[in-house]
Design a protein around this nucleic acid. Structure first.
Lengths: 354, 354
DNA sequence: CAGAATCTCTAGAACGTTATAGCTCAGTGG
DNA sequence: CCACTGAGCTATAACGTTCTAGAGATTCTG
């Protein structure tokens, strides 16, 4: 019995610290929580003992004892770059409100139902779902058990709260910008069945009609670079070619840009391009995509605030769906259609190649 | 006292199920865990009661009572796309081994220390750190408390386990491929202080000398598209221009490609480019980057297996550092340098622009 | 100086689960 | 008829924390 392989010394607990400091267990708890009820001298002594033993509170036991777990569950897609921005924002919002976050990822081998189930086992008090693809009925069922915040997807059910960008207004900003520059043949590359795509399509139509333009050109696109590239080829094949295009998102727009470059079109000389998301892609200096920025910070702040309001019993029905205004970030892929770029070797090449 | 605002019905517990089924609490526990010690008839009855009440086990209480939490903590960067692949792999590996994962993200406002601290509070049994930037001493301190697996970064300390790709071998694969195609002026764009960069640099040097090539060209690069673009401009300005280049990672390589296209260079006609990571970027049809693929599935499987081995008390010192062989994915950005592409309008343009 | 208020601390119970030990009852073998 | 076995179930005690109630000491108040 000289060797005990997995000896794994028991974690130090409040009881260990209490014994070392010569006080009771609850008093140590009081000190560790900075709760009132201990003298300064004792606090000092207890803290010292805790440090010496390397004490770390056990959040499982803590949450078990408290009625409130102060835990908000987040379901996010591990592939989607914009979810990264949202998760960052959620962390800071939750932190300032004194809540913790429990992350549960959706991966190719782990669907949303599993992700949600694990968060329910962890006894989260509320759930934040980023761009969920669960059917509305399941979302409603879930919301019967626990407050549910859906981010970046419109949901018809009244059971769940929604925080999302005003997609229609975003595209309208883009069209306004293009019209102001002098464009009047403006196309839209679509996101298909993706969350928000229908709204953006609608915004495009409305903006055009508001400006008295009737040449509606909607091309099937998608969420990825490949789908954008495909759409761009169709765009260039049109008989009366538009001078500008609004694209469902930045990834898709990057695919469009790539095809334009390969086909020797100058951007923005021959074609202005506007994306959507203001993802890290867009701000890259060699892409410099003009794009519609979603206010991730505001979205996440509101989602957390609303979740906490629900937990506190404040149900404001008028805030069930919060639609956040986006803003336009103008970079280098948009310009007036009639101005010939001063030093644009590509312009000549385009003439050469057509 | 007619209204109780946050009434929030208490979760159903084992006791509720037990009362409904007319049995004791421990028996319900036995049934829910599929443990031996209950008759088939009783199991049926208990399960029925549990379903009716919508019972969900409380993982906090469960983990508190068990000595083992069966929980592995993962620290990952929310920005880094490759971490997404790794997280996916970790989920499936942990799942098949009967472990749960606790995710903790590193964001601009949440550093690695905080991410680790929160996992320690959750009483994870082991930690998996993806490409951590913590100093070696802190990693060693951490490893004194809990088994630590470092993924995708070489660490000198013997305290932590490491699972990583053989970066040097990866670049050597790339160089071998290029030499085979007939290249002999091959440059390398560097990753600076990034994890793995030093190894890749070394692999480049060794591969060149193995092939008897002495024209070592190492250009400062980085992890991002912008840094790749910058490096590409330096590359093109070289007096005796290389015909091929190996780049630190795919993002950086994308920046290189973009500058090459803008400057009217044909890829692979005028310049072959090889990336590293086989990220989703590389496989996009309009980029089609030849690249060195890291075996994410194998890396994650080994990391989980090793963590569990540690927990079971098996410490195999010879497996402290596991170096995984990468493989080359050949796409369309590499070709022989002397073959003029058949239909390459850009070739003429390049001549035109130089 | 009595009584009240305040401060500092402790005892004990509780959160929801599971491990351990023990109970009951049928069946079995001597 | 008794001891024994084993299956099926229950009582009790933990896990580590925090809440409630209250004890003892000190200070304040009139």
């Amino acid at each position: 019995m000289t060797e005990k392989p997995p000896v794994r010394a028991r974690r130090t607990t409040l009881a260990d610290v209490a014994a070392r400091a010569g006080v009771s267990v609850p008093l140590v708890s009081i000190v560790m929580r900075d709760a009132p009820g201990a003298s300064a001298a004792t606090r000092e002594r207890v803290r010292e003992a805790a440090d010496e033993l390397g004490y770390r509170p056990d959040s499982r036991a803590r949450m078990l004892r408290r009625s409130r777990t102060q835990l908000i569950g987040v379901v996010f897609g591990v592939q989607h770059p914009f979810h990264g921005d949202l998760v960052s924002g959620l962390y800071t919002a939750a932190d300032t409100a004194g809540y913790e976050l429990a992350l549960s990822a959706v991966t190719p081998g782990r669907n949303e139902s599993r992700a949600v189930a694990s968060l329910l086992q962890d006894r989260c008090e509320a759930l934040v779902l980023l761009g969920p693809s669960l059917p509305t009925t399941e979302l409603a069922d879930l919301a019967a058990r626990i407050p549910v915040m859906v981010v970046a997807r419109p949901v018809r059910s009244k059971a769940v709260d929604v925080v999302r960008t005003d997609d229609a207004a975003g595209i309208q900003l883009a069209v306004d910008h293009l019209v102001e520059l002098g464009h009047y043949r403006i196309a839209h590359i679509d996101g298909g069945r993706a969350p928000g795509a229908a709204e953006r399509r609608r915004g495009y139509r409305e903006a055009l009609s508001r400006h008295g333009l009737d040449e509606v050109v909607i091309l099937p696109g998608g969420l990825t670079e490949d789908e954008g590239a495909e759409a761009a080829r169709h765009l260039l094949a049109l008989s009366s070619r538009p001078t500008a295009v609004t694209v469902f998102n930045d990834r898709c727009a990057t695919g469009v840009l790539d095809v334009l470059h390969r086909e020797r079109f100058s951007v923005p000389g021959d074609m202005s391009v506007v994306g959507f998301d203001d993802s890290s892609l867009a701000s890259l200096s060699h892409i410099a995509l003009t794009t519609v920025a979603q206010d991730a910070e505001r979205i996440t702040t509101l989602a957390i605030a609303r979740a906490i309001a629900r937990l506190d019993g404040h149900d404001a029905p008028d805030e069930r769906e919060q639609v956040i205004a986006p803003h336009l970030v103008v970079r280098s892929t948009t310009a007036s259609p009639d101005i010939e770029p001063a030093a644009a070797p590509s312009r000549g090449v385009q003439t050469f190649s057509t």
